[in-house]
C-alpha cells in the first residue's frame, strides 16, 4: 500500500513514479511531486521507484494569500 495525496492506494509490485502519475492524473494538469517529503523533479519521475509504504504528494496551483 502507498499513499497518494493522503489516500491509500494498493500496488502489487514496485513501480516507477511516472506510471503511478499517468494512472492517477491527467497529462493536461500542471503539477509537481514530492515522495517521502523530498521533492522529485520531472526529469526523475521515470527513475524513481515507488515501493510499499511510500508517501506521494502531488500539488498544483491554488489561490493563496
Amino acid at each position: 500500500m502507498i499513499f497518494i495525496n493522503g489516500v491509500k492506494t494498493q500496488i502489487k509490485n514496485d513501480i516507477n513514479l511516472e506510471k503511478i502519475l499517468k494512472t492517477n492524473f491527467s497529462d493536461s494538469y500542471s503539477y509537481a511531486v514530492a515522495v517521502n517529503n523530498e521533492f522529485v523533479p520531472k526529469s526523475k519521475y521515470k527513475n524513481t521507484i515507488i515501493v510499499k509504504g511510500d508517501i506521494i504528494e502531488v500539488v498544483s496551483a491554488h489561490p493563496g494569500g
Binding site: 495525496n5 503539477y31 502531488v58 500539488v59 498544483s60 496551483a61 491554488h62 489561490p63 493563496g64
Partner: peptide, 15 residues
C-alpha cells in the same frame, strides 16, 4: 499563489 494537493475537482483553470 499557493500549492495544494491536486484533487478531482481541479481543472487547471486557476493556473
Amino acid at each position: 499563489v499557493s500549492v495544494r494537493r491536486l484533487n478531482d475537482a481541479d481543472d487547471n483553470s486557476f493556473f
